[in-house]
Design a protein around this nucleic acid. Structure first.
Length: 875
DNA sequence: CTGATCACGC
DNA sequence: GACGTACGTGATCAGT
């Protein structure tokens, strides 16, 4: 392969990258957009050009030999923003990681270094590419030298060959300096000749050939003003040409031989990309260059005879098919212990008593990927696993809750362990999902358990740095075990109750469908927003100020429909149809499908999804069972105790988020309200409307409640305007008024935004962390959203911390009692239990006490509770 | 199979 | 003034 040299104008490309990309930041708050752009450029060049020689030239210090000619050279330039200057050291590091020579020379600019080397390369007939965002360098174009000029972004370029320049300007590359001499260069503060721009300069050069020739032929040049300017600025023109001329004999200490690229070694790239959080780059590195390393796997009978009794720690990966570990088949268990890796079928486990003993021993530390799943699966094998010391999945989540957690492979890759295949590769996806041949499966499980072994210590180090070890070991890990028990316990759902509802609702739905079709004069699918939109706004030609379009047609959302009430009788029928069909399909029918043979529903709680630290619930979602409208609330009648003589018992925190807000901000008005037991919405109304308690109308309280709601959920002025049905301006005034009324809250909101900008993240009371990269975005929406996230996450996240802590405390303490009660569900600020009637009174106080004392705040936490024959009655 | 729309909870 | 607006799960439709 022929030799090829690439010369990069480092400063110029860094500037281009900086302005082309949004302001990115890594976890330690370093801006990385210029570095990232630079990296993209390097990758592209290496891949497409395959250079053998490479050099990145930088400008040295402020003064250069050009300043001797003209002291104002590059004068009047804006100061380099600090967001960019902090990146320059890393761009040099980047060069080093790529094993590319970088060079700068006192008193000279990158241009001169490049020019000098290009000359040497040309003498040796070496093909050369110069990469720059500065047109000056195009003067160097020749048969051997092509200039890659960045056009847009960092990777879109024009290739300046002599021919390209000829076509563009009508002269050879060297004449670029004459062009600059006449027209000057604003960015470098090169004066040129006043009144001469690109057009005039080109015309003159085409006629006379050079600056000198133009000046010698002044008498022939027409145009009084032009002639006068040229005459008066002869010196400027000559000086400008001199300034624009690149020195190709600079006294540099670098030769072509120094630019030779050594043998490829990616190791330093990995370390740097990790420091910079260039996750995509790391992945690419993996897929293109990394050799898959694999430990030897022992899939063997040796497991049976291996003695686990001296093991102090093990890595365990137990797997079932697909994601529902509560019922799907268990297909393999991987164990990493004392340097050996075993993978066995679940039936094999029981043959090794020492292994079972080790599993049950809390003295043997277990490192796992998913603590909750592991606990459940071993439980299904009738083994009580103890001593789970680390959960790789939870650690991944705590380190960055924004990550979409997928599988061991993905978690491992974040810590640069690349030998695990993705689950999708092994099992396939969608309808084609299947258990692969055993040797493939076992190899995969072995890779997973090895990755757990390798990655867990790295994660623990990271967690230590972020002071999150306690959050993992004292909160999330013990919580995972509580959740496992809740999932296995399940909640009894009475199928008959749902069946009866289903029949009743179906009759009403059938009637509504007929009536709606009659009103419309045609039969159509009411469930199709698209068809419904056409019927309402075209066939019936209804109109309302709320009428709006979505990407696919008219919006038929509830607020639009409500604005049409009274204009046509069809609307009320549609609204009712909507409500009932949602109830029917999602709840009445949906829930029945999930009732198991034990008559119970076993939801699964997802502990690693919500950005704020809340839990979520799937298969089914039992955190959004209707409650607001009685029609829907009746669904809860089907949720009943599983044991005789028991009741459903629900205990919920009252206003937990606003109490957290009062605690965090220390706002006196708010603290007082909670400490004196005044209704917080009334108190808010008193403050915002500046009236006494007696004068707070129900409407005032309703509005105050909406504002409090907005504060808790971080909604925008727009969101508030929607929920109150007022203008956005009025909503903004409300918010302003609110913040004036609670000055410490206002101060907190400002401080937390500053903090987010400073650190790049916000934290909760228990040091849960959420990164907010968009807080510095120049996009108004993204930034606004980020600001509301910064304000809201510490509140909602701390509330989540508190109830999680209460659950862990509950689990610890209930073991010391004789209560037979069972924790069934968590719904963000409430816990649902089933409790034998005989112990109800004592248990109520027990739970209330634990919940109210979960954490010590500057305001009391208050818990209300109720019980009844079903969840419906426990209100 | 994916994206859009809608609706339910906190 | 932009532009699309707390989070999460699930059902359904309508494109590929």
């Amino acid at each position: 392969m022929a030799d090829k040299l690439i010369l990069i104008d480092g400063n110029s490309i860094a500037f281009r990258a900086f302005y082309a990309l949004p302001l990115l930041k890594n976890q330690s708050n370093l801006h990385t957009n210029a570095i990232y752009g630079f990296t993209l450029m390097l990758e592209k060049l290496i891949k497409e050009e395959q250079p053998t020689h490479f050099l990145i030239a930088f400008d040295a210090g402020k003064t250069t030999f050009r300043h001797e000619t003209y002291k104002d050279y590059k004068g009047g330039r804006q100061k380099t923003p600090s967001e960019l200057s902090e990146q320059f050291p890393y761009i040099r590091k980047l060069a080093e990681a790529y094993q590319i020579k970088h060079y700068e020379q006192d008193m000279y600019e990158a241009d001169d270094i490049i020019g000098t080397l290009a000359k040497e390369a040309t003498e040796k007939q070496l093909e050369t590419i110069i990469v720059t965002g500065d047109r000056d360098l195009t003067q160097l174009a020749s048969d051997y030298v092509t200039i890659y000029y960045t056009k847009k972004g960092v990777t879109e370029i024009d290739k300046y060959t002599p021919q390209f320049i000829q076509d563009l300007y009508g002269f050879e590359p060297k004449k670029i300096i004459d062009l600059k001499g006449l027209m000057g260069d604003k960015s470098d503060n090169i004066p040129g000749v006043p009144g001469v721009g690109e057009k005039t300069a080109l015309k003159l050069l085409h006629e006379y050939g050079s600056v000198e020739a133009v000046l010698e032929n002044l008498e022939h040049i027409k145009g009084k003003k032009l002639n006068e300017n040229l005459t008066n600025h002869k010196e400027d023109a000559l000086m400008s040409k001199q300034l624009a001329t690149i020195n190709i004999d600079a006294p540099i200490n670098v030769t072509l031989a120094d630019t030779l690229l050594p043998e490829k070694d990616e190791s330093r790239k990995i370390a740097l990309f990790q420091e910079l959080d260039f996750k995509q780059m790391l992945e690419q590195l993996d897929s293109t260059t990394q050799v898959k390393e694999e430990k030897e796997i022992i899939i063997n009978e040796a497991f049976n005879s291996f003695d686990f009794s001296s093991a102090q720690s093990m890595d365990i990966r137990i797997r079932c098919f697909q994601d529902n570990y509560l019922k799907n088949e268990i297909i393999g268990v991987g164990i990493c212990v004392q340097g050996e890796t075993f993978v066995v079928e679940p039936d094999t486990l029981v043959h090794n008593i020492s292994f079972i003993e080790a599993l049950k021993s809390s003295d043997v530390n277990k490192f796992v990927y998913d603590a909750k799943e592991t606990k459940v699966l071993f439980n299904r094998l009738n083994i009580e696993i103890q001593g789970i010391a680390h959960c790789m999945m939870l650690a991944t989540y705590l380190l960055d809750p924004a990550l979409k957690i997928i599988d061991v492979a993905q978690s491992a890759q974040l810590h640069n362990v690349h030998y695990v295949e993705s689950d999708e590769m092994i099992f396939g996806k969608g309808a084609k999902m299947h258990v692969p041949e055993q040797h493939i499966l076992f190899k995969h499980i072995a890779a997973e358990v090895n990755a757990i072994h390798e990655v867990s210590p790295i994660q623990l180090e990271k967690l230590k740095e972020l002071e999150q070890v306690e959050l993992l070991t004292e909160l999330e890990l013990p919580l995972a075990l509580v959740l496992a028990e809740m999932e296995m316990q399940g909640i009894k759902v009475n199928k008959e109750t749902l069946k009866d509802m289903q029949n009743e609702i179906q009759v009403r739905l059938d009637g509504l469908v007929t009536r709606i079709h009659d009103h419309a004069g045609s039969t159509f699918n009411i469930n199709s927003p698209k068809q419904l939109g056409v019927v309402l706004f075209e066939d019936l030609a209804l109109d309302s100020p709320k009428k709006k379009k979505t990407k696919t047609g008219y919006s038929t959302a509830v607020d639009v429909l409500e604005s049409l009430v009274g204009k046509h009788p069809i609307i009320e029928d549609i609204l009712l149809y909507r409500t009932l069909s949602k109830l029917q399909s999602t709840y009445v029918e949906g829930l029945q499908k999930l009732i198991g043979e034990d008559g119970k529903i076993h939801t699964r709680f997802n502990q690693v999804i919500a950005q704020t630290g809340r839990l979520s619930s799937v298969d089914p979602n039992l955190q959004n069972i209707p409650v607001r409208l009685d029609e829907g609330r009746k669904i809860r009648k089907a949720f009943v105790p599983s044991e005789a003589d028991s009741v459903i018992f629900a205990a919920d925190y009252s206003q937990i988020e606003l109490r957290v807000l009062a605690h965090i901000t220390g706002d006196k008005g708010m603290l007082d309200a909670f400490n004196q037991g005044i209704d917080i919405h009334t108190k808010t109304a008193m403050k915002v409307f500046d009236v006494s308690k007696e004068d707070v109308t129900s409407n005032m309280r309703r509005q105050a409640k909406a504002v409090n709601f907005g504060i808790v959920y971080g909604i925008s002025d727009y969101g508030l305007s929607q929920s109150l049905g007022i203008t956005r301006k009025a909503a903004q005034e409300f918010i302003d008024n609110y913040l004036e009324s609670f000055p410490n809250v206002k101060a907190y909101m400002n401080d937390i935004i500053q903090e987010a900008k400073q650190n790049g993240y916000v934290t909760t009371l228990l040091n849960r962390r959420r990164y907010i990269p968009d807080i510095t975005s120049r996009n108004f929406n993204l930034r606004g959203f980020a600001e509301r996230t910064a304000m809201n996450t510490p509140i909602q996240g701390s509330a989540a911390d508190i109830i999680k802590l209460a659950m862990v405390h509950y689990n610890e303490q209930v073991k010391e009692t004789d209560f037979k009660a069972r924790l069934l569900l968590q719904v963000h600020d409430e816990l649902i239990f089933e409790v034998p009637k005989a112990e109800l009174e004592a248990f109520s106080l027990f739970v209330k006490n634990i919940m109210e004392n979960a954490m010590d705040l500057d305001v009391p936490l208050e818990v209300e509770y109720n019980s009844g024959e079903s969840w419906y009655e426990a209100k």
